[in-house]
Design a protein around this nucleic acid. Sequence first.
DNA 1: ACAGCCATGTAACTTGTTACATGATTTT
DNA 2: AAAATCATGTAACAAGTTACATGGCTGT
Lengths: 205, 205
Amino acid sequence: MSIRQSLLAILNQGPCYGYQLRSEFDRRTGSTWPLNVGQIYNTLDRLERDGLVEKADSDQAGHIYYAITAAGSAEAHGWLSSAVVRVGPARDELAIKLAIAVTLPDVDVAAVIQTQRKSSLGTVQELTSLRDTSAKPASTEDLAALLVIESQLFAAEAEVRWLEHIKTRLAQAAEAGVRAPMPLSTKTPKRGRPVKRTLHNAPTQ
Amino acid sequence: MSIRQSLLAILNQGPCYGYQLRSEFDRRTGSTWPLNVGQIYNTLDRLERDGLVEKADSDQAGHIYYAITAAGSAEAHGWLSSAVVRVGPARDELAIKLAIAVTLPDVDVAAVIQTQRKSSLGTVQELTSLRDTSAKPASTEDLAALLVIESQLFAAEAEVRWLEHIKTRLAQAAEAGVRAPMPLSTKTPKRGRPVKRTLHNAPTQ
DNA sequence: ACAGCCATGTAACTTGTTACATGATTTT
DNA sequence: AAAATCATGTAACAAGTTACATGGCTGT
């Protein structure tokens, strides 16, 4: 839901045509997220379908402009005046992965953490040097790009910190004797004849 | 791409039927992410389509089991032994939003930041008290749930720190005179008669 | 002439997500 | 008997993403 809103926010500045929107988005986000041009036209179609934009007059060059509607303007304004609410909450693949991993008997969680930490540390370093080159922003574009890089940097740093933190958590848990490997739950099915199930009496594969 | 992989990792422990997979996923992630049952069956269909699982024998109760295939097992193993690579990189709605916001002339970025900070701080506090209740995990499930909560907590804290950080960035930029409001780019279109475009000579809407 | 960018699209596809239908079984 | 839960699905849709087709125009 962010490309949609971004295009809407840009269109709120004035009518644009598709190709232009791509460069506007690129320019305003430091070209951080490559955006396939085709996606612009898809999104425009969907925005038009939802009544948030409409086709406007062409210019002398024949470009096909889209203009924001009142509803679209309201939505853009709403987006910018309300907080990004992490509903759900954020389905972070890494968190899911590690939660699943600690519940699996045959997974070396410490190794998973190490592998990830190495990778994430690499990301941190890349982002750090990237940021250093973007040191002093001279334009609003540069500023925007810097913010994006630092956003990723902060997130990557938090990831590393978390990974290091959960290493101690795992140690604590192991010390407390919470290391029982966890097979599939053996809760008795309620339908039909109850059947105690473990990994060892599971139906043949 | 995380539900898919999670189900695969669970199925790697032994055959399961759809409904069971839901409770396994819930159990192993602290019921953090509500998972519509229908989605299990969708995902199973797609996994089967991709040759990663296949239908297995039913048990006495008539449950429809799915068993992982060799390809599926390889994929599950690959998932757990390689780092989550944030390709793209992560398209964070908040980062996009603020990047766009600073490039728009009529947006009070400070207010956007304040609103978000308030919201994110609230999230931090909720997660903190949630974590405190999950203090000492007694089971592997509890441990997994704790990891998930702390993952979100670390992320939310990083978000707050970033928001506070970019406040100073904005101040620096303002001091350096980089506050020029940014209209739509006026790069001359290459097709047809070049037309200088600004917000004020855009085609009528 | 030819390569490459500008520009607009279309079709197909991915994962995720919800709403709904249907029936069996279990609990109250 | 009614309500809740177990269990399996289907249909539709959202947003994102890619690959491709098709021209016109531009620079070499």
